[in-house]
Simulated scan of single mutants.
Amino acid sequence: MMLLRYLSQIGKYFLMWKEIFSKQTKWSVMKGLIFKEIDDLIIGSLGIVAFISFFVGGVVAIQTALNLNNPLIPKNLIGYATRESVILEFAPTFISVIMAGKMGSFITSSIGSMRVTEQIDALEVMGVNSLNYLVFPKLIAILLYPFVIGISMFLGVFGGYVAAVYGGFGDSTDFIDGLQINFEPFHVTYAFIKTFIFGILLASIPAFHGYYMKGGALEVGKASTVAFVWTSVMIILVNYILTQLLLA
């Protein structure tokens, strides 16, 4: 029974995608919705992303420095380890899991509240494709999500630089030299490929749980929790698959 239930949910999820792109809302209306979603989902996330990225980058640099007990190990390893950690995993994956809580909860609760208050039913009665009206602007706004991750990468490395240099673990030359050692441009491409796919998951899974939820106001909170869990699980799973495909 549990397996059938999950298969049914997966089928409904893919049907949702079909409905999103059918019967488009007028562009004059959609344009305003897209800009609102960009403000809520992208601009509204920059503060927390900047704060976390800067300090976690600093922590990575400090932890790397504290483990360099052998004097034969060059100090530029601090910059190298910070760069690799931030670009490959921290910025695209760790930040996306955090955004599953912030963006995901917001998307699920906003759509779920409309379901509870029968606003979605009202849209359908007026002949509006509610999935296109509610979810499509979020998908378009989330196309700017790689921009957020790009800022996260920069601030993560900068935070590592500040922690390493001003914390007395190495000088500026060593850290910058470490940033340049064996730099592989494809790692940045890999990170943005992951980011794009994670962004689609961040918009679609919470929207699915909000749109198809049943019950009252209490169920909105439960739907937000379930959406966060499933979005996080899918991000980790897709991260593993993409790493195997692109880096192995």
Rank of each mutant, 00 (worst) to 15 (best):
Ser85Cys: 01
Lys31Glu: 12
Leu155Pro: 01
Gly44Lys: 06
Glu19Asn: 14
Arg115His: 05
Lys222Glu: 12
Gly101Cys: 12
Asn76Ser: 08
Gly168Asn: 09
Gln63Ser: 02
Phe208Trp: 11
Thr82Gly: 03
Ser204Ile: 07
Ala207Leu: 11
Ile181Cys: 00
Lys102Tyr: 06
Phe169Tyr: 15
Phe186Leu: 13
Phe147Cys: 13
Phe21Trp: 12
Asp40Tyr: 00
Thr82Arg: 06
Thr64Lys: 08
Asn76His: 07
Asp174Glu: 11
Ala91Thr: 02
Ala81Lys: 12
Gly47Cys: 06
Gly156Phe: 02
Gly156Lys: 04
Thr189Lys: 11
Leu66Thr: 12
Val238Ala: 11
Phe198Tyr: 13
Lys31Leu: 13
Ser85Ala: 06
Glu37His: 05
Gly167Trp: 06
Met16Thr: 00
Pro92Val: 10
Ile43Arg: 04
Gly168Leu: 05
Ser172Ile: 05
Trp17Cys: 08
Val116Asp: 09
Thr108Glu: 06
Ala203Phe: 11
Ser232Lys: 00
Ala164Met: 09
Ile98Arg: 02
Asp177Ala: 12
Gly167Met: 11
Leu7Gln: 06
Gly127Tyr: 13
Leu7Met: 14
Thr243Arg: 15
Leu33Asp: 13
Leu179Ser: 03
Tyr161Arg: 01
Lys36His: 08
Phe198Val: 07
Leu33Cys: 03
Gly170His: 03
Ile78Lys: 07
Met153Lys: 02
Tyr6His: 15
Ile235Ser: 14
Ala163Cys: 04
Thr173Lys: 15
Ser224Arg: 01
Lys194Asn: 13
Ala164Glu: 06
Gly178Gln: 04
Gln119Met: 07
Tyr240Thr: 12
Phe51Gly: 00
Ala50Val: 03
Val148Trp: 09
Lys102Thr: 09
Ile48Ser: 02
Ile87Val: 14
Gly112Gln: 09
Phe14Ala: 06
Gly58Trp: 03
Ile62Ser: 05
Gly112Asp: 03
Ala163Trp: 06
Thr243Asn: 15
Lys102Gln: 04
Ile140Phe: 08
Thr25Pro: 00
Met103Trp: 08
Glu118Arg: 07
Glu184Lys: 14
Val116Ala: 10
Phe51Met: 15
Pro137Ser: 04
Ile197Asp: 09
Asn70Ile: 07
Ser110Gly: 11
Leu242Gln: 13
Asn70Gly: 14
Val97His: 09
Ile87Ala: 05
Ile98Gln: 00
Tyr161Glu: 06
Lys222Gln: 11
Leu247His: 00
Ser45Gly: 08
